[in-house]
């Protein structure tokens, strides 16, 4: 279907002779139609979840595809009045912030060394980190669990934060190294002549100048942590943490398993868990996309 519409789109506007007439561009409505259809399919299920959260269960089961009748805020009020929900919001926030800060700090320090120090083994150091792209969390989750248990990090938020920092380092360093290398050498000379140490140069000049790169890296780490499921599943759930200490994704799933009969309640819980991601990450779209491009650019 789309192939045929694409052919009809051909605009003749680049031909100067046509300019006077400026025919109506039939491509435009077709494009809007396609774009709207794609957007509707993308957002439809999400809207459905939000709206159905306003329904009662009997109403939902009478006509699952209908609109709320009557509208009720009970489900949302119940979730928002549940201290467990807020504890889980806190857990997600703390672990995501911890991961983000850790990754930015460790990442920029290591990337600074790789980008601006001349020493034997520098290439090796870079290769060491980039090799990490070949070892995603999925592969090492079982032994990692064993390690964390031996370190007494099992079932704790640190048990999430530290491995997440470690696994985010490869992408982070790949994105940051070009940023740090692009800072002109003259700046460094000037700083050194002014009596700054190399560390001082790093702190006063490199950090502020690499902010765009750091933001990208930070957003990616935050998104990754906020949405993470596999690691919390092992570290928190299998690690025996209380369900109040679960991160949101784990908490939502736990709620849906425990209260599966309360479908509209689950929908409300799910909707509220979706909300922060939609608000923050949609705004950060450019950084996420830029980061993903940078991560594998070659």
């Amino acid at each position: 279907m789309t192939a045929t519409t694409a052919i009809t789109v051909a605009p003749g506007k680049a031909r100067p002779s046509r300019r006077a007439g400026q025919r109506f561009d039939w491509g435009q409505p077709v494009v809007y139609l396609v774009a709207l259809a794609v957007a509707a399919i993308a957002v439809g299920p999400v809207l459905y979840v939000f709206i159905s959260g306003f329904r009662t269960n009997p109403d939902f089961f009478t006509d699952p595809a209908g609109m709320p009748n009557p509208w009720t805020t009970d489900n949302y009020a119940r979730v928002l009045g549940d201290p467990t929900f807020w504890r889980q919001v806190l857990a997600s926030t703390v672990t995501a912030l911890g991961t983000t800060i850790g990754v930015m700090l460790l990442g920029v320090m290591a990337a600074f060394v790789i980008a601006r120090y001349e020493f034997k083994g520098r290439g090796l150091l870079y290769a060491l980190f980039t090799t990490g792209l070949l070892f995603p969390l999925t592969i090492s989750i079982l032994p990692l669990t064993v390690l964390l248990r031996q370190l007494d990090l099992f079932g704790t938020w640190w048990g999430l934060i530290i491995p997440q920092v470690a696994f985010a380092l490869p992408t982070t360093i790949i994105i940051l190294v070009p940023f740090l290398r692009a800072i002109p050498g003259e700046l460094e000379e000037a700083a050194l002549i002014d009596g700054a140490s190399r560390i001082g140069f790093f702190w006063r000049i490199v950090l502020p100048l690499s902010m765009p790169g750091l933001m990208t890296v930070g957003v990616l780490a935050f998104v990754g942590s906020w949405n993470a499921y596999l690691l919390p599943l092992f570290v928190l759930q299998a690690g025996g943490a209380a369900s109040e200490d679960y991160t949101l994704p784990l908490g939502v799933q736990f709620y849906s398993t425990a209260y599966g009969q309360d479908t509209t309640g689950v929908l409300a819980y799910t909707a509220l868990a979706m909300l922060p991601a939609i608000l923050f990450f949609t705004l950060a779209e450019k950084r996420i996309v830029g980061g993903l491009q940078g991560a594998v650019k070659g």
Binding site: L106, M109, S140, L147
Partner: peptide, 28 residues
């Protein structure tokens, strides 16, 4: 001094990375 700086700056990342990313793969 330079090596000290390198160790100070890159050390934490390298340690965390070796211990939590590479070691588990070998353990697996």
């Amino acid at each position: 001094r330079t090596w000290g700086e390198i160790a100070l700056l890159a050390g934490p990342a390298v340690l965390v990375y070796l211990f939590f990313v590479l070691l588990p793969v070998l353990l697996a």
